[in-house]
Computed example of a mutant assay.
Amino acid sequence: MNQASHKKIPPVFIVSSGRAGTTLLRGLLNGSNQIHIPPESDLITRAYPFYYDKQHFSDEDYKKIVKLFINTSEDNGWEMTEDYLLTCLKDQAPQTFTDINSTIYNAYLKHVGLDSQQWGIKRPVLIAGIDRIIRTFPEAKIVHVVRDGRDVFLSYKEIHRKDAVKFGPQGVVTNALYWIDGLRRIEEINNLDFYELRYEDLLSDPATELKELCVFLKIDYEKFIADENDKSISKNTALKTKDKLFIRKISEIKPTNTKKYLTKMSQIDRFIYELIAAPYLMKYNYPIEFNVVTSFLWFPLRNIAYMGARLFNNWRYHRRDIETYNK
Rank of each mutant, 00 (worst) to 15 (best):
R302I: 04
N285T: 10
I304K: 14
L297N: 13
N303A: 07
T294M: 13
E289T: 15
F296M: 09
Y284H: 08
W298H: 14
K283L: 08
L297W: 12
I268W: 09
L262G: 00
L301V: 14
Y261C: 05
K259F: 11
V292D: 12
R302K: 15
N285P: 00
E274F: 03
P287N: 06
V292E: 14
Y286F: 15
I272Q: 10
K259S: 08
Y284T: 04
N303P: 00
L281R: 00
N291R: 07
P300R: 13
L301M: 14
F290H: 14
T294L: 14
L262Y: 04
D269K: 13
A278P: 00
D269C: 05
P279A: 03
L301W: 15
D269E: 15
K260D: 08
S295G: 11
T263R: 09
W298G: 11
M265V: 11
I276P: 01
P279W: 03
T263V: 11
K260I: 02
F271Q: 06
I276T: 12
Q267V: 10
R302C: 07
P279C: 02
F271C: 05
Q267F: 09
I268N: 11
P287I: 09
I272P: 02
D269W: 01
S266K: 11
Y286A: 02
V293R: 06
I276H: 07
R270A: 12
E289F: 02
T294K: 15
Y286G: 05
I272G: 01
W298I: 15
M265H: 08
S266C: 08
E289W: 01
Y286I: 04
I272L: 13
I304E: 10
L301E: 12
L297H: 10
F271K: 08
P287A: 10
K260H: 14
L297M: 14
Y280T: 07
R302M: 04
I268K: 12
Y280N: 08
Q267S: 12
D269Y: 03
F299I: 15
F299K: 13
E274G: 05
Y273S: 08
I304D: 07
E274C: 06
P300K: 10
K260T: 07
N285I: 02
P279I: 06
L297C: 09
D269F: 02
Y280V: 05
I268D: 12
L262Q: 13
F290S: 06
V292H: 05
N291K: 10
S266G: 12
L281A: 01
F296L: 13
N285W: 00
I272A: 11
N303E: 14
R302Y: 06
K264D: 10
K260Y: 13
Y261R: 04
P279M: 05
R270W: 01
I276F: 05
M265Q: 11
V293T: 14
R270T: 13
V293I: 07
I276N: 07
